[in-house]
């Protein structure tokens, strides 16, 4: 399996044949194209749900990009990107958000802005 280049040296990858149930946490960026059910915590790092990714979990990360399906609440300390193939059911709390035409969202969007120094 190969993930799109993120320009980051350390990006862990979960392939599309992988199924995980439980608590997922870490301190590096994660590209997830498989199935995860439970919770994902990547404080200070980014999560990318690939086009084949199916996530049923609460997600907490610095940045979150969704191309696949995600059911659960999203909390991003920096930004959330919903790409056109994204199907998201859950509430989103973030500082910045970008949503492409065609993305599907069922849930709340709460944008907290903090003044940069």
């Amino acid at each position: 399996m190969s993930a799109p280049s993120t320009g980051l040296a350390q990006t862990a990858q979960i392939g599309k044949s992988v199924v995980i149930k439980g608590e997922l946490s870490g301190s590096e960026d994660l590209y997830l194209d498989g199935q995860v059910e439970g919770s994902i915590t990547l404080k200070g790092n980014s999560l990318t749900v690939g086009p084949n990714g199916q996530v049923k979990a609460s997600v907490e990360a610095k940045g979150i990009v969704v191309q696949g399906k995600l059911e659960g609440n999203i909390q991003a300390s920096d930004r959330v990107d919903l790409r056109k193939s994204a199907v998201v059911t859950g509430d989103i709390t973030t500082q910045r958000i970008s949503i492409e035409e065609g993305a599907f969202l069922k849930g709340k969007i709460d944008v907290h802005r903090t003044d940069g120094k």
């Binding site: 949503i99 035409e101 993305a103 849930g107 969007i109």
Partner: peptide, 21 residues
């Protein structure tokens, strides 16, 4: 249907928006 423009319009003014198609 999910509208990026509507989400931008209301969150940009500090409001909360729920989307349900």
């Amino acid at each position: 249907s999910t509208s990026p423009a509507n989400i931008r319009h209301f969150t940009g003014r500090g409001h909360k928006i729920y989307s349900e198609d």
